[in-house]
Design a protein around this nucleic acid. Structure first.
Lengths: 267, 267
DNA sequence: CGTAGCCTTGACCGCCCTCAAATTATGTGG
DNA sequence: CCACATAATTTGAGGGCGGTCAAGGCTACG
């Protein structure tokens, strides 16, 4: 039972008791297959909470001029739209990037469970907090990094996330996304993504063909991208007591005006 | 009691009972003044949850090359880092943009209260969900909009948010942020922000001097920016029952492959 | 085997950046 | 209240990163 993907997805941030696991699994539907380019959710409509068992998806929004901005990828093993049971809707679309197998978590069952379980509620909040940390990095990416750094950073992120699910083998992973998808994620034109990938290949940093990414020198790529993997880790504080008392309030932050936090690399 | 700013901040998304209000207020500290350019939080350290009573602040992160990306503004009346009690830390810095008066919400008191109150927990989650929706818009801004649209969009956002707190008077509001701040928010250089503001002034759309923004024609500005204010509204579903049953599952979304949601303007 | 989508490469252009300096606000101490 | 220092705004000139347009080659799939 502990190997169930739904339980695993949540246990990334919080360990669950056998009872909690059992309750969680009762909201689960049977797995279902979706084709490529299938919409799992659309803005304004109440989406379900999906758990991807295999395949990739992306969350995106359209601009009036027809441009598409991908605001996040959904990888196998990950939950999608965990926050939707709160807001009722999402303000983006979710579309599969490959053939996908997913299970739908019952909205009503989940809502009832979350009303009962404070712990599960904050676990899901923590999961969505990780998504937001990723999006904050994307904002840095698009705003201040060069094309080379943007693409490198995205590849580092995807590889690291896949690694957490055991979906990589010796620096290599399956990556069923097109260069146009990368372009819409890092806000570059497809042709410039292509040029950038060629440059990454010529640099000997990566190999990417037939939906397989191989990173020759991960530390070098991370360095080139300015990638710090810490933001992907769920540093949740399950027990609030472990945090209390170690800092005497806000006063430790007294720093009237200095060059802001010179030690941190880019956070 | 219902006019307390802390209660008001949360009642933007969920109505609270008198009992809940009382409990909430018990975690509140006395107001405190902070000077301009004071750090309220720094990455890696446990920040407090602040409520701004007056003045502006911003959340930002630094890049290795010394560039600064502002990832969000904190306006008077708004809570800051409501999620920090979950994660223990934040991955950005928070700095005042003007002199600020704020109250610090006790971490321990809040944690205890949130462990008791499922409802309050999801209220705070909803509030942070709005912040995330704003950040998603910023990603669109930086990724796909022109300088003119970016600056316009930011001004629309700030004005609309201030309006919700009654901090505007006939198309005008106090805006104590520099052009360099705007530049770091929309990922432009300060000089180009200046040129863009000059263009906005010449267009007769806005006036901005001595920390006072006046929007001559808000609909026109919104249109120029591609601004849709809906994402700022807390469309939370307080009662999960009101959502259930109106849609027969995911099948309403069956849209094997169409031009994605042509009706929506830019979401 | 054909077709459609994806990848690749070249040429040219424009938005925005950088560097630099002048002007105007802001704030502080005498 | 003024003199001064510092920060913020404004304007100009020139350059580069990445976009757009276009065409050819490759891959996948029916």
């Amino acid at each position: 039972m502990t190997t169930d993907p739904l339980v695993q997805a949540i246990q990334r941030v919080t360990p669950l008791s056998a009872e909690e696991q059992r309750e969680l699994l009762s909201c689960r539907s049977t797995p279902r297959k979706f084709p490529v380019h299938y919409h799992l959710a659309a803005p304004g409509t109440p989406p379900g909470v999906h758990l991807l068992l295999s395949g990739f998806a992306c969350k995106y929004t359209m601009l009036p001029n027809g441009q598409r901005q991908i605001v996040g990828f959904v990888l196998p093993g990950e939950l999608c739209d965990v926050r939707s049971h709160l807001t009722g809707t999402v303000d983006y679309s979710v579309r599969t990037l490959s053939a996908v197998e997913a299970i739908l978590i019952s909205h009503d069952g989940l809502a009832a469970l979350l009303h009962r379980s404070n712990k599960l509620l904050r676990s899901l909040w923590l999961l969505s907090a990780i998504e937001d940390a990723i999006m904050r990095q994307w904002l840095l990416n698009v705003g201040h990094r060069t094309a080379f750094e943007r693409v490198s950073h995205l590849l580092c992120e995807l590889f690291t996330r896949l690694e957490a699910f055991g979906l990589t083998t010796q620096g290599s992973c399956h990556l069923p996304i097109t260069q146009a998808d990368i372009a819409d994620a890092v806000a570059l034109s497809p042709v410039h993504v292509n040029r950038t990938l060629m440059e990454l290949r010529r640099s000997g940093l990566i190999s990417l063909r037939q939906q397989r990414l191989t990173i020759a020198d991960l530390p070098a790529l991370m360095n080139a991208a300015g990638f710090e993997p810490t933001y992907l880790r769920a540093h949740g504080v399950a027990d609030p007591a472990q945090r209390a008392g170690s800092f005497p309030g806000v006063d430790v932050l007294r720093r009237p005006d200095s060059s802001p936090v010179p030690s941190s690399r880019f956070q």
